[in-house]
Write a protein that binds this DNA or RNA. Structure first.
Lengths: 330, 330
DNA sequence: TTCAAATTGTCAAACGTTTATCAATTTTTG
DNA sequence: CAAAAATTGATAAACGTTTGACAATTTGAA
């Protein structure tokens, strides 16, 4: 790899001049600029960002800590973030916390050692107060990490109400909600709250089934089957689309017609689900807007770490209505 | 962030000694070691990897270039790679090439500027000969990039045969294959070859429908519907699972019973598909083994860039058989 | 032509770490 | 107790870049 000195030699100028061209400061004639650019081009020169970053310039590295990209929702969110960040000339260090606190701690240390310019995190571990001592700016997705760390999320409460009210409106009276495990900081708690409030308003009973995020799909099927057969609900609202797919499957195995005998609403509304399970009604999180906002806030903090930001930013959700709720023309 | 000198001062030793402890060379008494470790601990010291990497140590950064993690297959592959790499104390820079040659070029430059220790790439662009001039070791997934760049893939030809023979064995006689666009270097070409050879051996006609990777699912549905209605095949083999889901959907819309009237086999066999579409028969790529092998080869090259490796490594695929091919006990 | 402004160069320090060299000190061993 | 061995320290150079200070040169304008 060519270095600054090589470019200077080829262009017949000093390293200072080349640096002035690259960093665009001091006074420079057009002639030298073109000479230098030409030399950079023929040598295929690329400033060594390690050296720059050691010297004090921004590394332009952003750490992304999420449970894992194999989950469609996080996969789409991470991909969207990466696309937008890379368009802004940032690079992404990917960290799959797999919802393990130790892993997450190790990632935080590592990111600091690598001098990242900022961090966006969306893991759902609790009690990680280590975030308070990180000097890089942090933006959190959907989870409280500390008083000075802004939370960006979509409107989980409204999402819960939206889904539940849709089910009520279409005639359901026994509506089960399947949520992840009820953990202190989990964003799904608000979805449950929305569900409960809607049902209470309509004078209908609530039935919440908690299936931990980490539970295997096979076990989830067993649990779902049991609840469908014993409780015989006429609607199920799941706090994620994948679980909703399982419910749909089990219902079919039980010979329950959807939506006639069982209405179904999921949550997240990824592109994948909308494209490949369009019949599934679901609450759609605005992934693009969420990514834009997180990046915008992070850049503000990168520019000025002391800038005052809101504690919480909430973006609206929307509803995708498919045949899992309303019978279509056969 | 504490630096080496701070640790030295706190431990009451010289920076040389601290560095000797960290890098484990020279002779050291247990006593000083413990003193230094204690100081590192109380200061929460973490060596600045930017400085280390500038000095000449490995950055321990690995660049991952893939079309995008929102596709379940690549999502799972990337997540698996990241998990295994991070267990080996490597960090991952994520690059979503979105199958765009310019983007990919830019990523390559960027990765070099960041002094990555190695690169694993799995994009399907053609003619990127720039890979030849990269000094970091490269391992390619499923695609030819240059004479000295090993290709790791699963056995696409065997996969094509496996799927086709399964369909023949279960009585299909008019088997359509839906593949991605036929591009020079695409791994799916071998799957098509396996399909064609199997059918030729069985004296059955071949029907290949090419639907570009980038085509929207909605358009794909239209194409699929047209082919199902005009050709009236009794089986479809798709070169990826997502397309197979579309075929299943369209078949249901057309009132075709699966597998009685239409048998269906997909390709990739991600965890996601096996968990959430278990009825879909599919050719399973060994994602874990692929990741292990790629990492193992990359580490060999990192240790010794001149080490001779095979041009091609092929891992066996397996078959997941679900109800989309064989009717189960109702 | 002359002086000011603009341009370019030289030199050096800094970022945090590694590592070599050589010297100084401490510990061990016979 | 002396000599050998082990341990530790002081110093400096190096990685590639940025940037400030200041000097030297060129250019342009009056």
């Amino acid at each position: 790899m060519a270095k600054l000195a090589d470019v200077a030699k080829l262009a017949g100028v000093s390293v200072t001049t080349v640096s002035r061209v690259i960093n665009n400061y001091g006074s420079l004639s057009e002639k030298t600029k073109t000479k230098v650019f030409a030399a950079m081009h023929t040598l295929n020169y690329q400033p060594n960002s390690v050296a720059r970053s050691l010297q004090g310039k921004s590394s332009r590295l952003i750490g992304l800590i999420f449970p894992g990209v194999s989950n469609p929702f996080f996969g789409e969110l991470v991909q969207t973030l990466e696309n937008k960040l890379s368009a802004l000339d940032y690079r992404v260090i990917l960290c799959n916390s797999v919802n393990n606190a130790d892993t997450e701690r190790a990632y935080l240390r590592m990111l600091q050692a690598n001098q990242v310019a900022g961090i966006i995190t969306g893991t759902h571990n609790l009690t990680i107060r280590e975030y308070e001592h990180v000097d890089a700016p942090i933006i959190s997705f959907d989870r409280h990490l500390g008083d000075n760390i802004p939370i960006v999320s979509s409107d989980n409460y409204a999402g819960g109400k939206l889904a539940t009210e849709l089910l009520i409106k279409t005639g359901a009276t026994c509506i089960v909600m399947i949520s992840g495990a009820n953990r202190p900081n989990s964003p799904t708690n608000l979805r449950v709250k929305g569900y409960e409030d809607s049902l209470q308003q309509a004078d209908l009973p609530t039935h919440v089934l908690e299936l931990p995020f980490s539970m295997s799909p096979t076990l989830k099927r067993v649990e779902i089957r049991q609840h469908l057969t014993t409780l015989k609900p006429d609607a199920v609202f799941c706090s994620d689309d994948l679980t909703a797919i399982l419910v749909g499957d089990v219902a079919q195995e039980l010979g329950l017609k959807i939506p006639e005998q069982l209405k179904l609403v999921g949550y997240d509304g990824t592109r994948l689900i909308q494209d490949y399970q369009p019949q599934l009604s679901t609450v759609v999180q605005p992934i693009g807007d969420l990514a834009d906002l997180m990046i915008q806030l992070l850049r503000q903090r990168i520019k000025d770490n002391k800038v005052q930001l809101q504690a919480q930013y909430t973006l609206p959700v929307s509803l995708h209505t498919g045949a899992s709720v309303l019978a279509t023309k056969a």
